[in-house]
């Protein structure tokens, strides 16, 4: 009775959010070298400031811009105030600090916006059939916006000097420095991009679902899973794994039920860790 094309389509839409969060995480991991647990709450912040902007101005475009800037600004501030001071120390120190940052962000959001669920004020549209798959125009718009954002990030990484410098630092920070790459500029770009992506992802997820304090936090596990599945530090892998994970989660719901989605993510993670420790799309060349 289940309609597999429909589940795949739903999974891809869901996977786009995981993909964006995983991209934000994997970029930070490969350049700042720690798993940033604040990513989820940066998403939540984007969802709230986007919502506030939209209800004040009525413009979703403006809301998206504000969400991106919110994510970038929070991430830059967290770097300046916390992460930078822990650079060079054990990774666990930065990870724990990022959990602390996550709680601070959530507390500030709670005080500012309250704890109840909010929704974006968007006129309901009727779902249409596309090749037997039921999607709303909103689904398509959200997917289009996310795809555009992903394309933009990959364009920056691969076609601009700062993107090249970011990839160089991800490969080898010391070699980048002796090649004249200034780490401060790269870190600035990293947090702007990673934070901006997270902020926008949060807003998109908020549009698709509801805006509530746990919005981003609850995405953290699937996002980390996708980042690892994709081969930690590989942006393309993170996005591909995010989409795959979204589809796997959706496809499994007819069998295991909605509540076990996360368990599926975890099982996938464990399987890959045991079977292919460098991730599904891990780099071929070995460690040095």
């Amino acid at each position: 009775m289940s309609n597999f094309p429909q589940l795949i389509a739903n999974g891809l839409v869901q996977g786009l959010f995981i993909a964006m969060a995983a991209l934000a995480i994997t970029l930070a991991f490969s350049i700042a070298r720690f798993p940033n647990a604040a990513t989820g709450d940066v998403m939540t912040a984007g969802a709230y400031t986007g919502l506030a902007t939209q209800s004040a101005t009525g413009s979703l475009i403006l809301a998206g811009i504000v969400a991106i800037f919110t994510g970038a600004a929070i991430s830059l501030a967290a770097d300046r105030l916390v992460f930078r001071k822990l650079a060079g120390r054990a990774v666990v120190a930065s990870l724990v600090a990022s959990i602390g940052v996550a709680f601070v962000i959530r507390a500030v959001l709670g005080v500012t916006f309250g704890l109840s669920q909010l929704v974006y004020d968007i006129p309901l549209t009727r779902a249409k059939l596309y090749w037997g798959v039921r999607l709303t125009p909103l689904d398509l718009q959200v997917a289009g916006a996310v795809a555009l954002a992903l394309a933009l990030v990959f364009g920056i990484l691969h076609l601009t000097p700062i993107g090249r410098q970011m990839r160089a630092v991800a490969d080898d920070r010391d070699l980048a420095r002796v090649s004249g790459v200034r780490p401060e500029r790269v870190m600035l770009a990293l947090w702007m991009i990673s934070g901006g992506v997270a902020g926008l992802a949060g807003m998109m997820l908020g549009i698709k679902t509801v805006v509530e304090p746990e919005l981003g936090w609850s995405m953290l596990l699937p996002a980390f899973t996708a980042a690892i599945l994709g081969g930690i530090g590989s942006p393309g892998g993170a996005v591909a794994a995010g989409l795959l994970l979204g589809v796997v989660q959706e496809m499994s719901t007819p069998f295991v039920g909605f509540n076990y989605k996360l368990a599926i993510a975890f099982a996938a993670l464990l399987g890959v860790l045991l079977w292919r420790p460098s991730g599904l799309f891990g780099k071929r060349e070995g460690v040095r």
């Binding site: 000097p161 090249r164 410098q165 990839r167 160089a168 991800a170 490969d171 080898d172 070699l175 980048a176 090649s179 004249g180 790459v181 200034r182 780099k283 060349e285 040095r288």
Partner: peptide, 17 residues
């Protein structure tokens, strides 16, 4: 570790500041 393995040859040269 004297090159950037994930960058192309050209990018290894272009990245120099």
């Amino acid at each position: 570790a004297n090159v950037f393995p994930s960058l192309s040859i050209v990018e290894n040269l272009q990245v120099v500041g």
